[in-house]
């Protein structure tokens, strides 16, 4: 989320740019006054940023699939981010002019809050639209804060699998139901982003050094979970279930070559749908798509 923006020094610009997409912009847009709509927002900055994000997503999922390496070589990937963040902390602290003890206080405050957030334990929560709305607004706040990831907050609130399964419904016969369930989440995210960027931009305008010091603290607090050497435990979410023939080609193939389970997503055989069928040929079996997500990690010194 906000980590990279803080590291490369565009954090303040990012927050102000997000904030510039306000109700006036929406009003101009729906009344087709496009030039007026564009004049009030930081569209050049956002277009370049979004183009960068989009090409990075393509590059790091299709060409260098980071999401796979995070599961197969976690030490290398987490090490890379650990080094990146340690270096950035030093550079960012040096950039704060006239570092004094009161800066150290804000950095410590941020570190404590950051550490507290990244070591929270998942809690069971309600699936009412109101709570889903709230989850969306909290997760988006985490997304714009450095050191804390939005998807991690969803895990803590036990809404990650819920949102994922609703997104999985899109494009199937349950599209309408999925959309209806996601709607409170999206509305929450928009509301959260609008309110939180206003708070952050006010803080950056009035207490710039203190705010940046707390944000650097968040980065320091997050080092605990970024440390490359950890005992990691994962939770598996079934995102898709398909019923196939028990003796069919795909089922046989999976029995002969069991799937690699240290991948972020893989397909494996589930339960037999009709175990009482007379012949194996009549039986049907579930083919499930499993998504793995890191839920707990305990750092150790190698």
């Amino acid at each position: 989320g906000g980590t990279m923006a803080l590291i490369v020094g565009i954090y303040s610009r990012l927050i102000h740019a997000i904030k510039s997409f306000d109700t006036r912009f929406v009003k101009d847009l729906v009344t087709f006054r496009f030039s007026s709509a564009l004049s009030g927002v930081h569209w050049r900055f956002m277009t370049v940023l979004l183009a960068g994000i989009f090409s990075a997503i393509l590059f790091f999922t299709k060409i260098v699939p980071l999401q796979v390496y995070m599961f197969t070589d976690p030490e290398l990937i987490y090490g890379l981010f650990f080094g990146l963040i340690v270096g950035s902390i030093v550079i960012l602290l040096k950039a704060l002019d006239s570092f004094g003890w009161w800066h150290a206080f804000y950095v410590l405050l941020g570190t404590l809050i950051g550490f507290w957030v990244v070591t929270l334990v998942p809690a069971d929560t309600s699936e009412s639209p109101l709570f889903v709305f709230l989850s969306g607004s909290i997760a988006i706040c985490a997304m714009v804060l450095p050191g804390i990831s939005g998807s991690y907050i969803l895990l803590i609130l036990r809404k990650y699998d819920y949102i994922l399964s609703q997104v999985g419904k899109l494009g199937t016969v349950e599209t309408a139901e999925g959309l209806l369930m996601i709607l409170p989440f999206v509305l929450g995210a928009i509301t959260g982003l609008a309110l939180f960027t206003r708070l952050l931009s006010w803080l950056l305008d009035h207490y710039y050094v203190q705010t940046i010091a707390v944000l650097i603290g968040f980065l320091i607090g997050s080092l605990y979970v970024i440390w490359p050497y950890q005992d990691r435990s994962y939770e598996e979410f079934i995102t898709e279930t398909e019923v196939i023939e028990y003796t069919g080609e795909r089922a046989m193939e999976l029995r002969e070559n069991p799937p690699e389970t240290n991948l972020p997503t893989y397909r494996r055989l589930g339960e037999v749908v009709n175990p009482n069928a007379t012949f194996d040929e009549l039986k049907q079996i579930e083919l499930v798509t499993v998504k793995k997500k890191l839920v707990k990690s305990d750092p150790f010194i190698p």
Binding site: E75, L76, G79, L80, G83, L84, V86
Partner: peptide
């Protein structure tokens, strides 16, 4: 995989120092 973590951390540090230098 002690070495992997070390190599990763070094690459990360070099990247950020390089960026700052530029």
């Amino acid at each position: 995989h002690f070495g992997h973590g070390l190599i990763g951390m070094l690459i990360g540090l070099v990247m950020v120092i390089g960026l700052d230098f530029l």
